[in-house]
Simulated scan of single mutants.
Amino acid sequence: MGAARMKVYNGCAILLFGMIVFGSLMAAASTGPTDMSTAILVRVDQSGINGDFKKIQDAIDSVPSNNSELYFIWVKPGTYREKIVVPADKPFITLSGTRASDTIITWGDTGEIIDSATLSVFASDFVGRYVTIQNTFGTSGKAVALRVAADRAAFYGCKILSYQDTLLDDNGRHYFSNCYIEGATDFICGNAASLYERCHLHSLSREDGAITAQHRNSTSEDTGFIFSGCKITGIGTALLGRPWGAYSKVVFYLTNMSSVVLPQGWDDWGDQSKQSTVCYGEYKCYGPGANRTKRVKWSSSLSSDEAAPFLTMDMIGGRDWLRPVPTHFKRGSTILTEQADGITRD
């Protein structure tokens, strides 16, 4: 296994995954799919008319343990009132709607943060596409919509909705593209290594709510949240983040920050000792909320060299594991192909 490259700024060590993940990826590939263009199609239709299952959980349960093929679970439009778990022994699943606005997974649980999620992903190599995932519990407690606690997970065009702890980005390497994420209190939290590209972050906080609560606990942990080309809006005022872990790491670059972002930007969560250990940076952000003249002094305006490690997929090793959408599907001996308006027979 090659040696990792290290970048350091303001005391924060940044490990670039690109040179260290090769061995683990090759090990995964030996038991994973050899054909990334073809997936087994499983259809979910709550009406029971045009589907193999009425419930999403039943479709997930039908995937064999430790499967070595891609499974594509196509969810027809509807509101699915389910609390869903993707178990660790069911890798290589894609869960896809056609539009997030009409394919909704909803539940309303609270309690311990690790138990309240509407959708919990424990399986590696998971993909979510064009679905809404929401927790409707309300404003009085922890209410996770999505928990991601597995390596190599990606989400495209999803809506993730709740109030407190909306997205528990728990552990592993993750990628979020063109997602809408909404909440008020620490609504993107956890200790994953995640890249958010072109995502819309919407704060429901009336005042002083935090968008992020990243949970990195030491310099040896290669984790952090990176936001690239995103947009921040809201109904009141919000902080960019506060440290759930003493070595919390969050970077925003090329992000449009509305006036919802408080001038100080960041908070130490009542522990001044964390000011010397957190890694909070901004690079070429714009909009009224990006003005750094009143930012806390222990956050950073990154130079081009300091920002360089965050301008690629290297932190999550994404070039090696992000996979394209399958172009062919099979159900038994029937081969199908994807078209713009859905999946139809050849």
Rank of each mutant, 00 (worst) to 15 (best):
G2N: 14
A3W: 06
R5H: 13
M6P: 07
K7V: 08
V8C: 03
Y9K: 05
N10E: 11
A13G: 14
A13K: 12
M19Q: 15
F22Q: 05
G23I: 11
L25K: 12
S30Y: 08
G32I: 01
G32A: 04
T34M: 01
T34N: 00
D35C: 00
S37L: 02
A39D: 02
A39S: 07
V44M: 07
I49Q: 13
N50Q: 14
F53R: 14
K55R: 10
Q57G: 11
Q57L: 10
D58V: 10
A59I: 04
A59N: 07
S62V: 03
V63E: 05
V63I: 15
N67R: 10
N67H: 09
S68V: 00
S68L: 04
V75T: 04
R81N: 10
R81G: 03
P87D: 14
A88F: 07
T94D: 07
L95N: 10
G97T: 08
A100S: 15
W107H: 06
T110L: 01
T110S: 08
I113V: 12
I113P: 05
S120V: 13
V121A: 07
F122N: 11
V127G: 02
G128D: 14
V131P: 04
T139W: 00
G141I: 00
A143T: 08
V144S: 03
V148G: 04
V148Y: 03
A153T: 11
F155A: 03
G157S: 13
K159F: 03
K159V: 06
Y163Q: 02
L167N: 03
D169R: 10
D170K: 14
H174R: 15
Y175F: 13
F176C: 10
S177A: 07
C179A: 14
C179Q: 08
C179T: 13
I181K: 01
A184S: 14
D186N: 12
F187T: 00
A192Q: 08
A193Y: 01
L195I: 15
R198V: 13
L201P: 00
L201H: 01
S203F: 05
R206C: 00
A210M: 01
I211G: 00
T212W: 01
H215D: 11
S218V: 12
S218P: 09
T219Q: 08
G224F: 02
I226S: 05
F227Q: 04
K231S: 12
T233F: 08
A238S: 12
L240Q: 02
G241A: 09
P243Q: 04
V250S: 01
L254K: 07
S258A: 13
L262H: 00
P263S: 12
G265A: 09
D268A: 11
G270V: 06
S273F: 11
T277W: 06
T277H: 10
E282Y: 07
K284A: 06
G289Y: 04
A290F: 13
N291G: 11
T293I: 15
W298T: 13
S299A: 15
S300N: 15
S301H: 15
S301G: 15
E306P: 09
D314H: 09
M315D: 00
I316F: 01
G317H: 01
R319M: 10
D320A: 13
D320S: 11
W321D: 01
P324H: 08
V325A: 08
P326Q: 04
P326F: 01
T327Y: 05
F329H: 02
G332K: 00
T337A: 10
Q339I: 13
A340Y: 11
A340N: 12
G342W: 08
T344K: 15
D346F: 09
